[in-house]
Simulated assay, not measured.
Amino acid sequence: MEQKLDRIVTLFTDAMKELRSEIREEKVAFSASLLASGEGHTGPMNPVPSPLIYKKVSSNYGNGYDSNTGIFTAPIKGVYFFRFYAHCQGGRKMAVSLYKNDQKQCSVYSEKNEHNDNASNGTVLTLEKGDQIYTKLWEDSWVFDDPAGYTSFSGFLLFSL
């Protein structure tokens, strides 16, 4: 009887450890702004070689965001929310798109307004583990950032699947 009880306790303990591990994995959220310090613009580029790389990371739970590449890689399968915000100075074209595995999902655009302009967009996406999300400038467009974080990118897991 005692041996059976020890086995039940061991199974219960193992199940609790696995559950705790899964709960920890489900904490996924990041937020970053474009420049690590100072102020300036990014762009224009033609062609645009890579994603925008947001260097000033304020949070990165789950370590899904890579500040060396600008790419968020889903650590677990689930439904996620992403938001990006872009700023441009007057007289400049600003256009940025959000991509999932190289497929455009949504965009923001401002055509050479007289004054500074801002735009934001967001979307809910179902991701498989390993799917990649990033933002990218359009050709011949600009974004501006300073310590206030005018140009930023963030996302978080709504629930796992």
Rank of each mutant, 00 (worst) to 15 (best):
L34C: 02
S37L: 09
G149D: 08
E111R: 08
K56N: 15
D14A: 12
N118W: 10
L34A: 04
Q105H: 02
Y134N: 04
N113H: 14
Y134H: 09
K4N: 11
R92Y: 12
T151P: 03
T13A: 12
G70V: 05
Q105G: 07
F12S: 15
Y61P: 03
V28P: 13
G43W: 04
Q3G: 11
L137E: 04
T151K: 02
R24N: 14
T42D: 10
T135W: 05
G64L: 05
C88A: 09
T151S: 07
C106T: 15
G70R: 09
V96W: 02
Y54N: 03
V28Q: 13
H115R: 12
G62T: 05
D140F: 00
A32M: 12
S110D: 08
G91P: 11
A15N: 13
Y150R: 15
V57K: 06
S152Q: 09
Y134V: 03
R7L: 10
T73C: 00
S141D: 01
S21K: 13
F144K: 02
V57D: 07
L5P: 01
F159V: 01
G40T: 01
E26R: 14
G149K: 08
T10Q: 14
L34P: 02
C88P: 00
F144M: 03
I53A: 09
C106I: 15
S21I: 03
C106R: 05
S141Q: 01
L19G: 04
G38F: 09
L161D: 07
E26Q: 12
F144L: 02
V143K: 04
E139D: 15
V9T: 10
S59D: 08
D117Q: 14
G40W: 05
F153E: 10
H41S: 06
K55T: 06
P75T: 03
K136G: 00
F82V: 06
A148M: 08
E114N: 12
S67T: 10
P75E: 06
